[in-house]
Simulated assay, not measured.
Amino acid sequence: MPQTKPALYGGQAVIEGVMFSGKHVNVTAVRRKNDEIVFYEMPKTTKPWVKTLLKVPFVRGIVGLIDSSAKGSQHLNFSIEQYAEDEAGADGKDTAEKDKKEDGGSFWSLSMIFGVAVAGVISFVLGKLAFTVVPAAVEELLFGKSFDNIVLHNLIEGLIKIIFLLGYLYAISFTPLIKRLFQYHGAEHKVISCYEAGEELTVQNVQKYTRLHYRCGSSFIVLSVIVGVILYSMPFFEWNSIWERIYIRILLLPVVLGVSYEVLRLTNAVRDIPVLRYLGYPGLWLQLLTTKEPTDDQVAVSIASFNRMRELDAQISEQPGQAAVNA
């Protein structure tokens, strides 16, 4: 009999833990300071109209990004609450100054992440707008009157985006809390790779695998820059002023996101084909910044989250009525 391909799972790193998304449930595992691993389990409930849109090419990418951003923020909030309780301690003392002095700025990092989590979808939309508008405005101010070649303008704009992105990721990677977040990101990838290879999920087996993975959202970020350069360079998207240029960028943002998602799916589909597999390499290179090698303890948390997700998925699948509701 032909061997069944493993299911495709995704996830995200959270503060001191990992969230995995299954067919019927999302599960987050977080390690507390006393070494206890706690779980946050949430059934996946998707409205019928959202399910329909998730099947429509070029639309499903945008809907999926917004939906996952909203749901992911709930799991990130859970991890932040656990972290805050551990930092406060049993005596309830304010540890803000302690964080600043002993953790090299982790208090600032936690505040930054908390803001992203609370904002949810709003943060996602504003972040994409800023990343789209600011590089265009910078390029226009620096080079707008230097030459008329629209393709060259767009290439420079794309380069500015990449520089901004790499600079930002490099800067925050020095913050201890963000560094640990990136380590858990690596642990998430390793667990998925080990599972997809058909190996038993032990710490020793998982650690053998690379922390880079084709389906990571980091790849989507790089592809959106490349797709944007191509779309903006089309003749009918020329501009005559900086405001017109920014307007076009905002107007085309959903198109860029939708096309980038389809390109990402394509690169995943052809990653086992020689030569074509290199299409996904820019995203893998970016993951050298967004992931770090995890410790054994961090891998153990990732395994615990993945196993719990699959266990709950199996339980719900055995209940046809409930599975139909949560699918």
Rank of each mutant, 00 (worst) to 15 (best):
V255T: 03
R308T: 09
L181T: 12
G64I: 01
H189K: 11
N268C: 02
K23C: 07
E311Q: 12
Q298G: 08
L155C: 13
D35R: 10
F131G: 09
G22L: 02
S123V: 02
N240K: 11
Y214R: 13
R211F: 03
Y214N: 15
L288T: 15
P235H: 04
S106G: 12
Q204L: 06
E36V: 12
G283A: 05
S79C: 06
S173Y: 09
F220G: 01
T295R: 03
V225G: 09
Y184G: 13
A304R: 03
V206D: 08
E85C: 09
V27T: 15
G104E: 14
T291E: 08
L141V: 11
F124I: 02
I221V: 15
K101A: 15
L212C: 08
G92C: 06
G198P: 12
P57C: 01
L312Q: 09
M42W: 05
H75T: 13
G144N: 06
V255I: 06
V222K: 00
L279Q: 00
G89P: 13
G127F: 01
L286G: 07
R211V: 07
D296V: 04
V229K: 02
V14C: 06
M112Y: 07
P57K: 00
L155I: 14
I156K: 01
A304P: 05
E196F: 05
A136T: 10
D296T: 10
K33F: 12
K93W: 04
N326K: 11
V259Y: 00
K101P: 09
Y247Q: 10
A187Y: 02
Q3I: 14
G11N: 04
L264Q: 03
S241P: 08
L223Q: 09
K33G: 14
R310L: 11
I162L: 15
V118Q: 14
I250M: 07
A88G: 11
E188A: 03
L8S: 11
W239H: 13
N26E: 14
K208G: 11
I113E: 07
S233N: 08
G127P: 05
V325Y: 10
D103P: 03
R265Q: 00
M309S: 08
D91N: 14
L276Q: 03
T132C: 05
L126P: 05
F237E: 10
E293P: 05
D91M: 09
Q315M: 10
S302I: 05
R31S: 11
H213D: 13
E238I: 06
I162Y: 08
E87D: 12
L289Y: 10
V30D: 08
A96L: 07
V116C: 11
